[in-house]
Simulated assay, not measured.
Amino acid sequence: MAERVVIVGGAIMGSSLAWWLTELGHPAGAITVVERDPTYAACGTAFTNSCIRQQFGNPLNVRISQFGISFLKDFRRHMGDERVPEVHLHPFGYLYLADNEAMADRLRRAHAVQVAEGAGTRLMTPEEIAAEWPFFDTDGIVLGSHGTRDEGYFDGTTMFDWWRRIAAERGVTYLHDEVTGINTAGGRVRGVRLASGTRLEADIVVNAAGTRGAQIARMAGLDLPVEPRKRYTWVFSAKTPLPRDLPLTIDPNGFHVRTDGALYMAGATPAEDPAVDPDDFAGRWEIWEEVVWPAMATRIPAFEELRVEQSWVGHYDLNVFDANAIVGEHPDLPGFMILNGLSGHGLQQSPALGRGLAERIVHGRYESLDLTPFGPERLLTGVPFPELAVI
Protein backbone atom coordinates (compact mmCIF):
# COMPACT_ATOMS: atom_id res chain seq x y z
CA MET A 1 0.00 0.00 0.00
CA ALA A 2 1.37 3.42 -0.97
CA GLU A 3 2.31 5.76 1.82
CA ARG A 4 -0.30 8.43 2.44
CA VAL A 5 1.27 11.87 2.06
CA VAL A 6 -0.20 15.09 3.40
CA ILE A 7 1.53 18.27 2.18
CA VAL A 8 0.86 21.32 4.34
CA GLY A 9 0.94 24.28 1.97
CA GLY A 10 0.08 24.29 -1.72
CA ALA A 11 2.18 27.18 -3.02
CA ILE A 12 5.38 26.80 -5.02
CA MET A 13 7.15 24.24 -2.82
CA GLY A 14 4.08 22.15 -2.02
CA SER A 15 2.92 22.03 -5.64
CA SER A 16 6.41 21.25 -6.92
CA LEU A 17 6.56 18.32 -4.51
CA ALA A 18 3.05 17.13 -5.42
CA TRP A 19 3.85 17.16 -9.15
CA TRP A 20 7.21 15.46 -8.69
CA LEU A 21 5.68 12.74 -6.52
CA THR A 22 3.24 11.86 -9.30
CA GLU A 23 5.99 12.15 -11.90
CA LEU A 24 8.09 9.62 -9.98
CA GLY A 25 5.20 7.19 -9.71
CA HIS A 26 3.67 7.82 -6.30
CA PRO A 27 -0.09 7.20 -6.57
CA ALA A 28 -1.79 10.57 -6.84
CA GLY A 29 -4.76 9.33 -4.85
CA ALA A 30 -2.49 8.93 -1.83
CA ILE A 31 -1.43 12.61 -1.89
CA THR A 32 -3.38 15.44 -0.25
CA VAL A 33 -2.32 19.08 -0.31
CA VAL A 34 -3.89 21.18 2.43
CA GLU A 35 -3.96 24.88 1.58
CA ARG A 36 -5.52 27.50 3.84
CA ASP A 37 -5.91 30.08 1.03
CA PRO A 38 -6.48 28.61 -2.44
CA THR A 39 -6.26 32.10 -3.96
CA TYR A 40 -2.58 32.17 -2.88
CA ALA A 41 -2.98 35.94 -2.60
CA ALA A 42 -0.71 36.39 0.41
CA CYS A 43 1.82 33.58 0.08
CA GLY A 44 5.49 34.07 -0.62
CA THR A 45 4.99 32.82 -4.17
CA ALA A 46 2.55 35.68 -4.89
CA PHE A 47 5.11 38.34 -3.97
CA THR A 48 8.21 36.82 -5.49
CA ASN A 49 10.42 38.82 -7.83
CA SER A 50 10.85 35.60 -9.83
CA CYS A 51 14.57 35.57 -10.53
CA ILE A 52 17.22 32.88 -10.64
CA ARG A 53 20.98 33.06 -10.17
CA GLN A 54 24.04 30.88 -9.83
CA GLN A 55 25.98 33.36 -7.71
CA PHE A 56 25.83 31.51 -4.42
CA GLY A 57 28.65 30.81 -2.00
CA ASN A 58 27.50 27.27 -1.27
CA PRO A 59 28.28 24.81 -4.10
CA LEU A 60 25.12 22.79 -3.52
CA ASN A 61 23.04 25.91 -4.10
CA VAL A 62 24.87 26.51 -7.38
CA ARG A 63 24.04 22.99 -8.54
CA ILE A 64 20.41 23.42 -7.45
CA SER A 65 20.13 26.58 -9.57
CA GLN A 66 21.75 24.88 -12.53
CA PHE A 67 19.06 22.22 -12.47
CA GLY A 68 16.42 24.93 -12.06
CA ILE A 69 17.70 26.68 -15.18
CA SER A 70 17.72 23.49 -17.22
CA PHE A 71 14.21 22.65 -16.02
CA LEU A 72 12.61 25.98 -16.82
CA LYS A 73 14.40 26.25 -20.18
CA ASP A 74 12.75 22.99 -21.24
CA PHE A 75 9.60 23.34 -19.15
CA ARG A 76 7.05 22.02 -21.64
CA ARG A 77 9.02 18.85 -22.33
CA HIS A 78 9.52 18.20 -18.63
CA MET A 79 5.81 18.64 -18.03
CA GLY A 80 4.96 16.33 -20.93
CA ASP A 81 1.89 18.31 -21.97
CA GLU A 82 1.48 20.36 -25.16
CA ARG A 83 -0.89 22.75 -23.39
CA VAL A 84 1.95 23.99 -21.22
CA PRO A 85 3.60 27.22 -22.41
CA GLU A 86 7.33 27.63 -22.48
CA VAL A 87 8.91 29.56 -19.63
CA HIS A 88 11.32 32.15 -20.96
CA LEU A 89 14.40 33.40 -19.15
CA HIS A 90 15.34 37.07 -19.52
CA PRO A 91 19.09 36.73 -18.93
CA PHE A 92 20.28 40.12 -17.74
CA GLY A 93 22.47 38.54 -15.06
CA TYR A 94 23.20 39.56 -11.48
CA LEU A 95 25.85 42.15 -10.61
CA TYR A 96 27.18 42.14 -7.06
CA LEU A 97 29.10 45.26 -6.05
CA ALA A 98 31.66 45.49 -3.24
CA ASP A 99 32.82 48.74 -1.66
CA ASN A 100 35.46 47.36 0.71
CA GLU A 101 38.12 44.68 0.66
CA ALA A 102 36.31 42.35 3.06
CA MET A 103 33.27 42.32 0.79
CA ALA A 104 35.51 41.94 -2.26
CA ASP A 105 37.16 38.91 -0.68
CA ARG A 106 33.73 37.33 -0.18
CA LEU A 107 33.01 37.86 -3.87
CA ARG A 108 36.34 36.29 -4.81
CA ARG A 109 35.73 33.23 -2.63
CA ALA A 110 32.20 32.82 -3.99
CA HIS A 111 33.50 33.28 -7.53
CA ALA A 112 35.94 30.40 -7.03
CA VAL A 113 33.07 28.17 -5.87
CA GLN A 114 30.87 29.17 -8.79
CA VAL A 115 33.55 28.68 -11.44
CA ALA A 116 34.42 25.26 -9.99
CA GLU A 117 30.75 24.33 -10.48
CA GLY A 118 30.73 25.55 -14.09
CA ALA A 119 28.94 28.89 -13.59
CA GLY A 120 29.66 31.75 -15.96
CA THR A 121 30.59 34.31 -13.32
CA ARG A 122 33.24 36.95 -13.97
CA LEU A 123 34.94 39.37 -11.59
CA MET A 124 35.06 42.96 -12.82
CA THR A 125 37.08 46.01 -11.86
CA PRO A 126 35.29 49.35 -11.40
CA GLU A 127 36.71 50.46 -14.73
CA GLU A 128 35.32 47.40 -16.50
CA ILE A 129 31.91 47.94 -14.91
CA ALA A 130 31.85 51.60 -15.99
CA ALA A 131 32.87 50.68 -19.53
CA GLU A 132 30.09 48.10 -19.90
CA TRP A 133 27.36 50.04 -18.07
CA PRO A 134 28.28 53.74 -18.32
CA PHE A 135 25.19 54.77 -16.36
CA PHE A 136 26.72 53.47 -13.09
CA ASP A 137 28.60 55.81 -10.77
CA THR A 138 31.31 53.42 -9.55
CA ASP A 139 32.78 55.80 -6.99
CA GLY A 140 33.82 53.75 -3.97
CA ILE A 141 33.37 50.39 -5.70
CA VAL A 142 36.40 48.08 -5.52
CA LEU A 143 35.06 44.95 -7.26
CA GLY A 144 32.04 43.51 -9.00
CA SER A 145 30.83 40.00 -9.79
CA HIS A 146 28.59 39.48 -12.80
CA GLY A 147 26.77 36.38 -14.05
CA THR A 148 27.25 36.20 -17.80
CA ARG A 149 24.72 33.45 -18.45
CA ASP A 150 21.74 31.62 -16.94
CA GLU A 151 20.78 34.36 -14.51
CA GLY A 152 17.78 36.62 -14.73
CA TYR A 153 13.98 36.83 -14.61
CA PHE A 154 11.52 34.08 -15.49
CA ASP A 155 7.76 33.63 -15.17
CA GLY A 156 7.59 31.59 -12.01
CA THR A 157 3.82 32.01 -11.78
CA THR A 158 3.37 29.92 -14.93
CA MET A 159 5.59 27.19 -13.51
CA PHE A 160 3.61 27.15 -10.27
CA ASP A 161 0.22 27.19 -11.99
CA TRP A 162 1.03 24.19 -14.20
CA TRP A 163 2.57 22.13 -11.42
CA ARG A 164 -0.59 22.63 -9.40
CA ARG A 165 -2.96 22.11 -12.32
CA ILE A 166 -1.37 18.92 -13.61
CA ALA A 167 -0.93 17.45 -10.12
CA ALA A 168 -4.65 17.98 -9.53
CA GLU A 169 -5.56 16.54 -12.94
CA ARG A 170 -3.51 13.46 -12.12
CA GLY A 171 -5.59 12.94 -8.99
CA VAL A 172 -3.83 14.81 -6.19
CA THR A 173 -6.40 16.21 -3.76
CA TYR A 174 -6.10 19.94 -3.11
CA LEU A 175 -8.08 20.61 0.06
CA HIS A 176 -9.14 24.10 1.12
CA ASP A 177 -8.66 23.83 4.87
CA GLU A 178 -6.16 24.63 7.60
CA VAL A 179 -4.04 22.28 9.67
CA THR A 180 -4.66 22.86 13.39
CA GLY A 181 -2.89 19.84 14.85
CA ILE A 182 -0.63 16.92 14.03
CA ASN A 183 -1.16 13.42 15.40
CA THR A 184 2.14 12.05 16.71
CA ALA A 185 0.84 9.06 18.65
CA GLY A 186 3.49 6.44 19.27
CA GLY A 187 6.33 8.83 18.46
CA ARG A 188 5.72 9.14 14.74
CA VAL A 189 3.40 11.02 12.40
CA ARG A 190 -0.08 9.55 12.13
CA GLY A 191 -2.01 12.33 10.47
CA VAL A 192 -3.35 15.87 10.81
CA ARG A 193 -6.38 17.62 12.27
CA LEU A 194 -8.03 20.35 10.22
CA ALA A 195 -10.00 23.47 11.12
CA SER A 196 -13.07 21.93 9.51
CA GLY A 197 -12.95 19.10 12.06
CA THR A 198 -11.68 16.59 9.51
CA ARG A 199 -8.91 14.20 10.51
CA LEU A 200 -6.62 12.96 7.77
CA GLU A 201 -4.56 9.87 8.37
CA ALA A 202 -1.06 10.06 6.95
CA ASP A 203 2.22 8.16 6.93
CA ILE A 204 4.14 11.29 5.89
CA VAL A 205 3.35 14.92 6.67
CA VAL A 206 5.41 17.48 4.75
CA ASN A 207 5.75 20.95 6.21
CA ALA A 208 5.76 23.18 3.11
CA ALA A 209 3.94 25.98 4.90
CA GLY A 210 6.41 28.76 4.10
CA THR A 211 6.21 31.59 6.60
CA ARG A 212 3.94 29.46 8.78
CA GLY A 213 6.49 26.66 8.89
CA ALA A 214 7.46 27.23 12.53
CA GLN A 215 3.78 27.15 13.56
CA ILE A 216 3.26 23.80 11.84
CA ALA A 217 6.44 22.40 13.43
CA ARG A 218 5.24 23.43 16.91
CA MET A 219 2.06 21.43 16.35
CA ALA A 220 4.34 18.41 16.07
CA GLY A 221 6.32 19.41 19.18
CA LEU A 222 9.34 20.59 17.19
CA ASP A 223 11.25 23.86 16.90
CA LEU A 224 11.99 25.26 13.45
CA PRO A 225 14.17 28.39 13.19
CA VAL A 226 12.04 29.96 10.45
CA GLU A 227 10.62 33.45 10.76
CA PRO A 228 8.54 35.64 8.43
CA ARG A 229 10.59 38.72 7.49
CA LYS A 230 9.36 41.68 5.46
CA ARG A 231 10.94 42.48 2.12
CA TYR A 232 10.01 45.59 0.11
CA THR A 233 9.58 45.91 -3.65
CA TRP A 234 9.02 48.98 -5.85
CA VAL A 235 8.32 49.03 -9.58
CA PHE A 236 9.10 52.38 -11.18
CA SER A 237 9.51 54.18 -14.47
CA ALA A 238 12.45 56.47 -15.20
CA LYS A 239 12.14 59.80 -17.00
CA THR A 240 15.34 58.90 -18.82
CA PRO A 241 15.37 55.13 -19.43
CA LEU A 242 18.73 53.40 -19.43
CA PRO A 243 20.21 52.60 -22.85
CA ARG A 244 20.42 48.86 -22.15
CA ASP A 245 19.18 46.24 -19.72
CA LEU A 246 20.12 46.81 -16.11
CA PRO A 247 21.52 43.66 -14.50
CA LEU A 248 20.06 42.76 -11.14
CA THR A 249 22.45 44.94 -9.19
CA ILE A 250 23.05 44.19 -5.52
CA ASP A 251 24.45 47.38 -4.07
CA PRO A 252 26.44 47.51 -0.82
CA ASN A 253 24.18 50.35 0.30
CA GLY A 254 21.38 47.87 0.91
CA PHE A 255 19.18 47.83 -2.16
CA HIS A 256 18.91 45.81 -5.36
CA VAL A 257 17.49 46.96 -8.68
CA ARG A 258 16.96 45.47 -12.13
CA THR A 259 15.26 45.88 -15.47
CA ASP A 260 11.58 44.88 -15.42
CA GLY A 261 10.47 45.04 -19.03
CA ALA A 262 10.09 48.73 -19.89
CA LEU A 263 10.16 49.53 -16.15
CA TYR A 264 12.54 48.84 -13.28
CA MET A 265 12.18 46.90 -10.06
CA ALA A 266 13.95 47.71 -6.82
CA GLY A 267 13.94 45.89 -3.50
CA ALA A 268 15.30 46.37 -0.02
CA THR A 269 15.50 44.86 3.43
CA PRO A 270 14.49 47.29 6.20
CA ALA A 271 17.22 48.27 8.66
CA GLU A 272 15.02 47.00 11.46
CA ASP A 273 14.13 43.47 10.43
CA PRO A 274 12.18 41.70 13.18
CA ALA A 275 10.10 38.57 12.84
CA VAL A 276 6.51 39.51 11.97
CA ASP A 277 3.13 37.87 11.90
CA PRO A 278 2.55 35.96 8.64
CA ASP A 279 -0.49 38.17 8.00
CA ASP A 280 1.35 41.47 8.58
CA PHE A 281 2.02 43.15 5.25
CA ALA A 282 2.02 46.76 6.48
CA GLY A 283 4.90 48.82 5.12
CA ARG A 284 7.04 51.63 6.47
CA TRP A 285 7.08 53.31 3.10
CA GLU A 286 9.18 56.26 4.20
CA ILE A 287 12.27 54.09 3.66
CA TRP A 288 11.85 54.67 -0.09
CA GLU A 289 12.42 58.42 0.02
CA GLU A 290 14.69 58.41 3.05
CA VAL A 291 16.97 55.47 2.20
CA VAL A 292 16.42 53.50 -0.99
CA TRP A 293 15.83 56.15 -3.63
CA PRO A 294 18.72 58.42 -2.56
CA ALA A 295 21.16 55.51 -2.52
CA MET A 296 19.91 54.22 -5.85
CA ALA A 297 20.07 57.66 -7.52
CA THR A 298 23.64 58.02 -6.27
CA ARG A 299 24.63 54.76 -7.93
CA ILE A 300 22.56 55.39 -11.09
CA PRO A 301 22.12 59.17 -11.58
CA ALA A 302 19.50 58.61 -14.31
CA PHE A 303 17.18 57.42 -11.53
CA GLU A 304 17.04 60.85 -9.90
CA GLU A 305 13.80 61.44 -11.84
CA LEU A 306 11.41 58.52 -11.64
CA ARG A 307 7.87 57.59 -10.72
CA VAL A 308 6.83 54.68 -8.53
CA GLU A 309 4.17 52.68 -10.36
CA GLN A 310 3.59 49.91 -7.83
CA SER A 311 4.94 48.73 -4.48
CA TRP A 312 4.36 45.89 -2.07
CA VAL A 313 5.65 44.06 0.97
CA GLY A 314 6.29 40.34 0.76
CA HIS A 315 7.77 37.88 3.23
CA TYR A 316 10.79 35.60 3.31
CA ASP A 317 10.51 32.38 5.28
CA LEU A 318 13.94 33.14 6.69
CA ASN A 319 15.97 30.34 8.23
CA VAL A 320 17.64 32.36 10.98
CA PHE A 321 20.04 29.48 11.77
CA ASP A 322 22.05 29.54 8.52
CA ALA A 323 19.87 31.12 5.77
CA ASN A 324 19.67 27.86 3.85
CA ALA A 325 16.87 25.46 2.97
CA ILE A 326 15.73 22.86 5.50
CA VAL A 327 14.80 19.70 3.65
CA GLY A 328 14.23 16.15 4.85
CA GLU A 329 12.79 14.03 7.62
CA HIS A 330 13.12 15.28 11.18
CA PRO A 331 15.22 12.76 13.16
CA ASP A 332 13.04 13.17 16.26
CA LEU A 333 9.75 12.46 14.50
CA PRO A 334 9.59 9.76 11.82
CA GLY A 335 7.26 10.69 8.99
CA PHE A 336 7.51 14.44 9.57
CA MET A 337 9.30 15.99 6.62
CA ILE A 338 10.36 19.59 6.10
CA LEU A 339 10.52 21.66 2.92
CA ASN A 340 10.93 25.08 4.42
CA GLY A 341 13.24 27.94 5.39
CA LEU A 342 14.07 28.86 1.79
CA SER A 343 15.16 32.37 2.83
CA GLY A 344 14.09 34.05 -0.40
CA HIS A 345 15.35 31.34 -2.75
CA GLY A 346 12.19 29.24 -2.94
CA LEU A 347 11.02 29.93 -6.46
CA GLN A 348 14.39 29.34 -8.11
CA GLN A 349 15.11 26.27 -5.98
CA SER A 350 11.66 24.70 -6.24
CA PRO A 351 12.38 22.41 -9.23
CA ALA A 352 15.37 20.73 -7.58
CA LEU A 353 14.07 20.65 -4.01
CA GLY A 354 10.65 19.34 -5.01
CA ARG A 355 12.34 16.62 -7.05
CA GLY A 356 14.77 15.78 -4.25
CA LEU A 357 12.19 15.34 -1.50
CA ALA A 358 9.97 13.38 -3.89
CA GLU A 359 12.89 11.02 -4.53
CA ARG A 360 13.37 10.64 -0.79
CA ILE A 361 9.71 9.75 -0.32
CA VAL A 362 9.35 7.45 -3.35
CA HIS A 363 12.78 5.78 -3.38
CA GLY A 364 13.91 6.27 0.20
CA ARG A 365 16.99 8.22 -0.90
CA TYR A 366 18.15 11.19 -2.95
CA GLU A 367 19.02 10.06 -6.47
CA SER A 368 19.74 13.22 -8.51
CA LEU A 369 21.28 15.73 -6.12
CA ASP A 370 22.31 14.72 -2.62
CA LEU A 371 20.34 17.11 -0.40
CA THR A 372 21.49 15.46 2.82
CA PRO A 373 23.39 18.60 3.95
CA PHE A 374 20.06 20.45 4.02
CA GLY A 375 18.66 17.96 6.54
CA PRO A 376 17.17 19.14 9.84
CA GLU A 377 19.82 17.13 11.72
CA ARG A 378 22.06 20.21 11.58
CA LEU A 379 19.55 22.11 13.69
CA LEU A 380 20.11 19.62 16.49
CA THR A 381 23.89 19.40 16.21
CA GLY A 382 24.27 23.16 15.91
CA VAL A 383 26.55 22.81 12.87
CA PRO A 384 25.31 25.20 10.17
CA PHE A 385 25.39 24.63 6.42
CA PRO A 386 25.42 28.33 5.58
CA GLU A 387 24.58 30.43 2.60
CA LEU A 388 25.99 33.95 2.88
CA ALA A 389 24.78 35.24 -0.49
CA VAL A 390 21.27 36.16 0.64
CA ILE A 391 19.66 39.23 -0.93
Rank of each mutant, 00 (worst) to 15 (best):
A2E: 01
I7Y: 01
G10N: 04
M13W: 03
G14L: 00
A30S: 13
A30N: 04
L72E: 04
D74W: 14
G80I: 09
D81P: 05
E82I: 13
E86V: 06
V87G: 08
H88W: 11
L95P: 03
L95S: 03
Y96T: 09
A104K: 12
R108P: 01
T121S: 14
L123G: 06
T125K: 10
E128C: 09
F136N: 02
I141D: 02
G144P: 08
R149Q: 12
M159A: 14
G181R: 05
N183S: 15
N183F: 09
N183L: 15
A185S: 14
R190K: 13
L200S: 00
D203F: 11
A217I: 07
G221F: 10
G221W: 10
G221L: 09
V226I: 11
V235Q: 09
P241F: 10
P243C: 04
L246Y: 08
L246I: 06
L248Q: 10
T249E: 06
R258N: 05
G261L: 02
L263G: 00
M265N: 02
A271H: 13
E272L: 05
F281N: 07
A282H: 15
T298H: 13
I300H: 00
F303V: 09
E305D: 14
R307K: 13
H315E: 07
N319T: 03
V320L: 13
V327T: 12
L333C: 01
P334I: 12
G335L: 11
I338G: 05
G341K: 01
G341W: 01
H345Y: 13
Q348N: 09
G354T: 07
I361S: 07
V362R: 05
R365F: 12
Y366I: 04
S368C: 03
G375D: 03
P376T: 02
L379Y: 13
